[in-house]
Design a protein around this nucleic acid. Structure first.
Lengths: 199, 199, 199, 199
DNA sequence: TATGAATGAGGCTTCATTCAT
DNA sequence: GATGAATGAAGCCTCATTCAT
């Protein structure tokens, strides 16, 4: 990511657009969208602000492009989930895949988590929310007890917590991931079982 | 100017400071801290920007004051928790009280949840994080299995989710609160039991 | 206009708004609207750009305010004209008063004449055009021969020409004004007579 | 890119230069010179900005070239006029020919009329002004009464008015042209007669 | 208790132009 | 005959802040 391949003075081939995205995401995630200025991004890249505008029409377009690129797996996951039978196995698999997607696009998710106020006003907000709700609808049985519905959502939230606030509880990321998965799977299972029990 | 003609609209009895805080919190929660300008706050109040500076030394001080006022219950909760024995009952009571604190200062918590990037850079960030960690340390048994530690944190997160993302799952706030509590209490209980089981 | 009353260091009382308008009009007339930057205006006044924004919401508002202030006499003229009987005397009086209005707001009219492309896109454009058409409708008899209608419009245009392109034909402004008036009055009279003749 | 697939849309036979001029003139006339950007011109043509620079050294050169191409007839008219005797017939013929020139290069004249502020700063300004003054000098008898000199100039202005502001008075362009010509010829004749009368 | 007037820094964006390919 | 990539200058505007009154 953003790593120079030959180590020399940053080859400016066709990769500037990519480099802008990388740097922007890093800064957005670190400081927030509004506090990150285009000047900062440009300076970090050793380019002029105007160069950014050759590649993106506006500041918002930078973040939208990031979002579109990095969020696709989530869309595909929803798509996939919709076509599966609503079994416990499916739900567990969704949790697993979602966790993987989260890990793969960690900086973006961190950004979205920490800048919800911003995201809400950007036109991305809606798309993202829709996808999350798609996911939720697959996990949740609308006839289930309310508490079990909460459990399903909680499973997702637990994964998020695992990415962003549990770093000081256990430093080994692998162990952390395992523990988090255990809880999430447990929650989704209880939610599913609860539903069954009533039958 | 400033003269009360009818006594209706102007209750300014020296409560301007309070009114500033109210309006500011509403706007911060709605649009985020950076996107809310002092001009906006002043306009909403029918005052001049300069007036804000009579009551607060800076923009940051406004939010810090809000934070200090609204977050005190959380501090007291931690204080209280520290003096209790680490029983299951204590933990459950903490969950209950935290939920109440959350409800009482909903806009502020919403703000903090949605503007983490900002909060992190403000000097409040630390205080808040410390309190949250205080809470966590009371709930968590450091010798517990990692998954059980995750469960404890998850309980807190579930309460948050209950405030902010479960509104479309069930519109009756009272039912929602009950269901959320059930899950959170359940999680904390499992976490505690898991710990005991190993003994 | 913009003249300091006491000669000392520009007294900054409540006249800054006025001074901005003066300087802006001068520059707009001299260089055109687009080529005049706010920086230039501010520098000429010994103020910051930001100060301009304390008095006007945008660059466009500066010109709109100028337009509104300076164009009022024209509106009143149209109003007056509408209430007079459509006699030759009325029309001649309109020509005379229009000429006076032109002289009184010469820089603005010069600006509008030389920046029509700009004016068209500003929201002022319409108002101005409407007033000019109001004037024309008073001068023109819709049943008159086309050539006589043209004469009426030509009378107005002659007045404009008198202000802006005849300066090198005769340097004494008073004589110039007289000659221009003679031709304009002559044109409007012919137009009126032509109409009568057909009766 | 640039490959003609069907031969329809692309007649690029080295006529790009011409196409640039056409588009530029259209845009300059519509929006003004300063408000028209090279990006806009390029986009409208389906070319890159850089392509414009292959054909013209600068933005100014585009307009200068337009001016030079389209204004030549005016130069020739002045040339021709200078060699004629200063009779009434000559003057009338000049009015006629000028009207024709105006019609032939309407967009350019419209542009010049509506962007005088810009034109003045471009180096074209002088040339154009000189030509107009040449024309005027042919029409005007320096010994004539001032009012008659004004009449001569007014005749030219009437032609301009005919092109640009009389469109709503009479929609049939042919009738309009006739009426305008009548008035202009009339004015120039009066101017000439006035001069003679004094003899 | 507040306002009116202003500032300095910095934000996003657009422009004409250049140059290697 | 034209493009892709970039630059430097400048534009308009907004913000938090100050201070005399």
């Amino acid at each position: 990511m953003g790593v120079t391949m030959d180590g020399t003075k940053q080859q400016r081939r066709g990769n500037t657009r990519q480099r802008i995205q990388d740097v922007a995401l890093a800064l957005f995630a670190e400081q927030g969208y509004e506090k990150t200025s285009l000047r900062e991004i440009a300076e970090r890249l050793g380019v002029t602000k105007a160069a950014l505008y050759y590649h993106f029409k506006s500041k918002e377009e930078i973040i939208v492009s990031l979002f579109e690129d990095l969020t696709r797996p989530l869309g595909e996951l929803v798509e996939w989930g919709r076509q599966q039978p609503p079994t416990l196995e499916t739900k567990q698999e969704i949790i697993r895949r979602y966790s993987a997607a989260l890990a793969a696009a960690a900086p973006l998710f961190r950004f979205m988590q920490e800048n919800q106020a911003t995201v809400r006003e950007l036109r991305i907000g809606d798309t993202f929310r829709q996808r999350m709700m798609g996911l939720r609808n697959i996990l949740i049985d609308p006839d289930a007890r309310l508490a079990d519905q909460v459990r399903s959502v909680s499973a997702l939230f637990t994964l998020h917590a695992g990415m962003f606030v549990l770093q000081d509880i256990e430093s080994d990321p692998e162990k952390r991931r395992e523990a988090v998965m255990e809880v999430a799977i447990d929650l989704i299972t209880q939610a599913h079982q609860g539903t069954r029990d009533r039958d």
